[in-house]
Amino acid sequence: MAKSTKPAAKKSAVKAPPAKAASNKIAKTQIIDMVADKTSLNKKQAGEAVAAMLSSVVGALQGGQSVGLPGLGTLSVTQTAARTGVRPGTSQKITIPAGKKIRFKVASTLKGTL
């Protein structure tokens, strides 16, 4: 038997990343695929439609409007009052300034089917 002239490859000590656990979250690309499957749009057009819809929702919320999504629920912007809180670890009292939050109210039709 002839010996190989190539040096033996060293085994890498780097471990492969752990396999990702199944997630319950649906990514934007998956939504685009679903829209493309359910319509006559190709993936590029479906991506543009999803992006336009999300942009419209964000724009309306930034303008202080509520957004109703039939069968899903309503997104709205609510004001929060300034309040006193406690800093974790130090128990120091801090003032949390007033701000805005996005509120989501689930549609009764969806709530009944969950």
Score class of each variant (00 low, 15 high):
Q45V: 09
G112M: 06
I94W: 03
I102A: 08
L54A: 12
G47T: 04
T80I: 07
A27Y: 02
L72S: 03
I32S: 01
A49G: 05
K105I: 12
S91N: 15
L61A: 04
S12K: 14
S91M: 15
K10I: 09
A36L: 02
G59N: 05
K105W: 04
S4Y: 05
A13G: 15
K20C: 03
G64C: 11
T74G: 08
S4T: 07
V106H: 02
G64R: 08
G89Q: 05
D37C: 08
A81F: 04
S66P: 00
L75H: 02
L75I: 11
L75Q: 05
A98F: 14
I94P: 08
P18I: 00
K6Y: 03
Q62Y: 08
T78N: 14
I102V: 15
G64V: 05
K15Y: 12
N42P: 02
P97F: 06
R83A: 11
I94H: 04
R87G: 05
K101M: 04
V35P: 00
D37I: 09
Q45C: 10
S108K: 15
K28M: 02
G64K: 08
G63W: 07
V50K: 09
T113Q: 14
G47S: 06
K38S: 13
L69S: 12
G99N: 03
A98H: 11
D33R: 10
T78H: 13
